[in-house]
Structure formats: C-alpha cells, structure tokens
C-alpha cells in the first residue's frame, strides 16, 4: 500500500467544477495551503467549501475566493477578510453561517456515519428560528435565508431542555495539513494545528493530506497516530520550502500588551 501522490497537482486532478471540499485549519494554522494552490492552478470552479474560516486576504482559501472559484461556504467566522465580505454582501457568495462546535460535529458526524444529531447550541437564536442570510441579491436584500431547525425536548441531568437538529456535512473531497504522515495515510498533527483537520479528513469521500514530513509505515508509533490512515486516500509530501512558508496571523511575544 502506498497512498503517496507524485505531486499536489496529481492529487487534486479529479477535483472538478462544482465539487464540495472540507478544508482543515483554524485561522492561518494547520491550513493545507499547497493543496489549495494546486486546486487554484487546476482550474476547478463553483466550489463549495466547508472550513471554519476562509483565509485572509491573499492567503489560504482567500486565493480561491480572489479568483471567484468558490460559490458557497460553510463557516463559523470570517471577519478580517474583506474580499469575503464584499462577495457575500454583493450576492456573489453564499455563506452558511454555522456555530464552530456545530461545524466540527457536523464534519465528525459525516465521517462517523451519523446523518444528524441534536445539540443545545443555538437554541433560542436565529440558528434555530431561521432567517440568517445565506445569500444576498445584487441589491443587498436577503435572497436565501437559513431554514428553521426542528427542536426536541430531552431530559438531561434531570432537567427538560430543548435541543435542535443539525445535519451531517459530508463532502466530495477533504484537504488537510498534517505534521507527519506515512505511506498508509496515518497522520500526526502538531499543537493547535490539529483543529479541524481530523474532522475534515473524516467528512471527505476522498481525502487528501499534505504532510510536512513523510515516513515509512511502521515509523510512527501506533500509540501516537492521531488519525488512522483509513480516513486518508492520498498523501502529498511537502518540500522544506513549502513547510517554511507557514505564516503567523498575530505574532505576540511575552510582555506584549493584551488586546
């Protein structure tokens, strides 16, 4: 078994126009930037992207946004991204605003074969009642809004409480970044770069991982594997230059004044 692709371009070659993509990363951390660049170069458009954030101007998923290659996004936070805001407000981009924990669980559920689940998150808010604007028309009026979600009462800790139904979020493809991977697709993540990566990997029907270091099967202690290779279909090994290109969004050092 060898899941290693000859190149990033090769690994993403079958991601076609209209595909849905789960993308790992939180902010600028743990983002599969090399695979995102390969998708840009390959030319697919009308993509639906599921990612907590959507990059920042000129970086990460923003390079696909800049070329108008994304038509729909499922995300929890997209402040600090002017082009995203512009496309959303001008009706060019549909945005399904989803609470962060719900987003993580919808990806996990998709990978776990669970089509939906009840959660307390968002009960009593627009997430439950519907009406969050997913798409504006070109005049800035709401064209598509979120539907109301089914609510059920369950007894938890002896107390009747309301929960709302959220549906799993399976995608055609997933692209993720890991610190370490082997030819079987076993992955190890580093520090807070784990974030959405294992969950995105589980949600994808075909999952592609870019790894900062590639090793042979057996070199990773089985006790220390974070994501078993069964969830990973293709591996791309990054060059040292690609690994070194990692950026920091807010560089803070000891003694700096908190904001």
């Amino acid at each position: 078994m060898d899941k290693v692709s000859s190149s990033a371009a090769d690994a993403v070659a079958d991601i076609g126009t209209g595909a849905s993509l789960a993308v790992g990363g939180f902010g600028w951390c743990g983002v599969p930037t090399v695979l995102i660049e390969a998708i840009r170069d390959a030319g697919a458009t009308d993509l639906e992207v599921v990612s907590n954030n959507c990059g920042a101007d000129g970086w990460g998923l923003a390079i696909l946004l800049a070329e108008r290659r994304i038509s729909r996004v499922v995300a929890s936070f997209f402040g600090d991204n002017r082009e995203f805001a512009r496309q959303y407000l001008q009706g060019e981009l549909e945005v399904e605003i989803t609470p962060q924990g719900t987003l993580a669980e919808r990806l996990r559920a998709a990978g776990a074969g669970i089509p939906g689940f009840f959660t307390p998150t968002g009960v009593g808010t627009l997430v439950e009642q519907g009406g969050l604007v997913w798409r504006f028309d070109h005049e800035g009026n709401a064209a598509v809004v979120s539907p109301a979600k089914p609510v059920r009462t369950f007894v938890r800790a002896g107390k009747a409480q309301q929960f709302l139904l959220e549906e799993a979020l399976p995608t055609d493809f997933a692209i993720v970044r890991a610190a370490l991977g082997d030819r079987h697709g076993n992955l190890v993540f580093h520090a807070s770069a784990k974030n959405f990566n294992p969950l995105a990997a589980m949600a994808g029907r075909i999952t592609i991982a870019e790894v900062e270091r590639l090793v042979e099967p057996g070199e990773i202690d089985p006790d220390l594997v974070h994501l078993p290779g069964i969830f990973v279909d293709r591996i791309v090994e990054l060059t040292p230059e690609q690994v070194a290109a990692k950026q920091i969004e807010k560089r803070m050092v000891k003694g700096m004044v908190k904001r």
């Binding site: 936070f77 997209f78 609470p99 719900t102 998150t121 808010t125």
Partner: peptide, 10 residues
C-alpha cells in the same frame, strides 16, 4: 457586517 459567531453559541 456579520463576521460569524465562531464558538460563542456553543
């Protein structure tokens, strides 16, 4: 402009 709720609702 809405920036998203992040993890606040959870």
């Amino acid at each position: 402009l809405i920036k998203g709720m992040g993890g606040a609702m959870d």
